[in-house]
Design a protein around this nucleic acid. Structure first.
Length: 562
RNA sequence: UGGCCCAUGGUGUAAUGGUAACACUCCGGUUUUUGGUACCGUCAUUCUAGGUUCGAGUCCUAGUGGGCCAACCA
């Protein structure tokens, strides 16, 4: 927590060096620049935490800037979702900006470039241009249109803007060097003709600027000091600087681009394009499907903003390729949920228990602590009766002594209730156990303080009273992909690794206090895991998502004995 | 057959020329009315070869391995 003792990541070191070299702290400014063409994912969360974290650390403003230069892909729906996600993560932006706000300024600068003989209108097809561009190992060659006169370029460019020309007929290109070793410097396209309505500028423009031309100049307009992006943009830095050189006024702050490695998460894909494909092909129900590594998906799953921020802090920022194990994310989710969620009881795979020496028709309301981690959460009351459900896996006719749960002739504590002993069980015609008959010790009531209640029994089970329990739909999730790195396998498409069993829907029974649970509310079902109420939930049909299971050392013991 | 970036336990990140550390995972234990939590402990790391230096994970060179670059996407 101590800022001064915490080691700096390499971005923070760059900033510290700039500060030492005389950069004013008040000149520091950052931005988070999403393109509104999809939902934000865990990789963006990392970038958001980086940029807004820097803002907090240096008390510097952070803009939320939508990189909306491609009306073919961008929509208002995504703008709204992105704003919601950033806010939910717990960050406040200084101002909300749009690259489209700068279209006029960008156009004016482009005209200036043409006048300075730094840009020209090319009228080749994209195929011709691709050939002419060369390859990484071979230089390109000049376009036949490269030497158009300034006045001809000016006239054409204005016509492009005015919608005189068809899509694909002309582009504006920067005039740099077709033999440059960096392919991005081989006369990159600045503008294309697009007869499309834009979500903000509507049909005002018939030409739209490309990323490279837009991004750095937007940083410059906003006077962003450090423009942070992922490593695949590293080759763009040279162009970023070249474009800046064309318009730079030395009395103003000059933004600098620096790059960090995107964070990869195991057993999923962290790519908007691939996530969009999962949505489009209906592998998942939508961008906010709880199996998706999107911020909205994680929110719906029950992850907390705190846990995602802690995760981002822990994984840090660096420049090497990485594949972060999803178990680290789950650790942070459990860590936060353990501290904050109330405990309740829910039986996912019910087995009926009848307490033969408990009077028929009797019910008792027992006091139960809401959280051993947080006293302030108080207590609630639980109904107990003659017939209960316990978890099917918590009973065996016979078992070795490693099995702490209920077995014939053995005793267990029912959480917050009595100690019971299994006397017999009945089976259906297929040999499946359908009911267990038990006796209880009436003096062993939890919290009663009697000698019997203080007895140590090895196992404690969760349970619900059959007549009081509420039926609930419970959605269990597993990893979306069976491979830890589905999208880096040579000759294999990531879709081949989709886990067919990533969703299982079951019907369980939960304690009656959950009847009034609100959408989004989180609970720990004791001994089972963390669950939250899904947005599909209604008065008629209670729906829970399993957020993450509890650590399960019994499962490990079982695995080893197999 | 080019250019650029990267290389620290199983995973991620530190160590800023001076004893390689922290977290997760794994494994073992203590406590426990959650086989949870908490706490304690074990195992395990500088890609290779040269060089600079009293001293190199850190600087230099080469090699090896991985990644990025040929959208009118961002």
């Amino acid at each position: 927590m101590n800022e001064t003792s915490k080691s700096l990541n390499f971005i923070e070191q760059i900033i510290e060096e700039d500060l030492e070299k005389g950069y004013a702290k008040s000149d520091l400014r950052f931005r988070f620049p999403p393109e509104p063409n999809g939902y934000l994912h865990i990789g963006h969360a990392s970038s958001i935490c980086l940029n807004f974290g820097l803002g907090l650390r240096y008390q510097a403003p952070v803009n939320l800037r939508f990189d909306d230069t491609n009306p073919a892909k961008e929509e208002q729906e995504f703008v709204d979702a992105i704003k919601k996600d950033v806010s939910w993560l717990g960050f406040d932006w200084n101002t909300e900006r749009y690259a489209s706000d700068y279209f006029q300024q960008l156009y004016d600068w482009a005209v200036q470039l043409i006048k300075n003989d730094k840009a020209y209108v090319d009228s080749q097809t994209s195929e011709e241009m691709a050939v002419q561009k060369g390859t990484p190992t071979q230089p390109g060659f000049n376009s036949p249109y490269r030497n158009r006169t300034v006045s001809e370029n000016l006239a054409l460019f204005e016509e492009m803007k005015n919608g005189v020309h068809e899509e694909g007929s002309h582009v504006l290109r920067a005039k740099i060097d077709m033999a440059h070793t960096n392919m991005l410097m081989r006369d990159p396209i600045m503008y294309r003709v697009l007869h499309r309505a834009h979500h903000r500028t509507n049909t005002d423009w018939c030409i739209y600027p490309m990323y490279d031309w837009t991004h750095g100049e937007s940083d410059y307009i906003e006077q962003v000091s450090h423009s942070l992006c992922t490593l695949e943009f590293l080759p763009h830095r040279e162009l970023y600087d070249w474009f800046l050189d064309q318009v730079y006024d030395p009395t103003k702050l000059r933004p600098k681009q620096r790059e960090f490695a995107r964070r990869n998460l195991s057993h999923t894909v962290v790519s908007k394009r691939k996530l969009a494909q999962l949505v489009a092909e209906k592998v998942v129900t939508g961008w906010d499907d709880p199996r998706m590594p999107t911020i909205s998906g994680m929110r719906r799953r029950g992850y907390t903003p705190e846990s995602i921020r802690n995760f981002a802090d822990t994984i840090g920022i660096a420049k090497r390729d990485n594949l972060i194990d999803v178990s680290l994310l789950e650790f942070h989710v459990r860590e936060d949920l353990n501290k904050t969620t109330p405990r309740v009881m829910g039986v996912l795979d019910p087995l009926k228990v009848v307490i033969t020496n408990y009077p028929e028709g009797k019910e008792e309301w027992l006091e139960a602590e809401n959280s051993p981690e947080d006293e302030s959460l108080g207590f609630r009351e639980l109904p107990f009766s003659r017939e209960l459900y316990i978890e099917k896996e918590d009973f065996k006719e016979e078992a070795n002594k490693k099995f702490f749960r209920l077995k014939l002739g053995g005793e267990v504590r029912l959480k917050n209730a009595y100690i019971i002993k299994a006397e017999s069980c009945t089976k259906d015609t297929n040999g499946n156990i359908v009911e267990v008959q038990c006796t209880y010790d009436p003096k062993s009531k939890s919290g009663s303080g009697t000698e019997e209640s203080l007895r140590k029994v090895k196992g404690t089970l969760h349970w619900v009273s059959t007549s009081h329990a509420v039926q609930a739909e419970i959605r269990l999730y597993d990893r979306l992909f069976t491979h830890e790195s589905p999208d880096t396998q040579k000759d294999k498409d990531f879709m081949e690794f989709i886990n067919p069993n990533s969703l299982e829907v079951i019907t369980g029974f939960v304690e009656p206090s959950l009847k009034e649970a609100q959408i989004g509310e989180r609970f720990q079902f004791q001994r089972m895991g963390y669950f939250c109420v899904d947005k599909d939930s209604s008065d008629k049909n209670l729906v829970f998502n399993k957020t993450v299971g509890l650590r399960d050392s019994w499962a490990k013991i079982q695995q080893k004995s197999e």
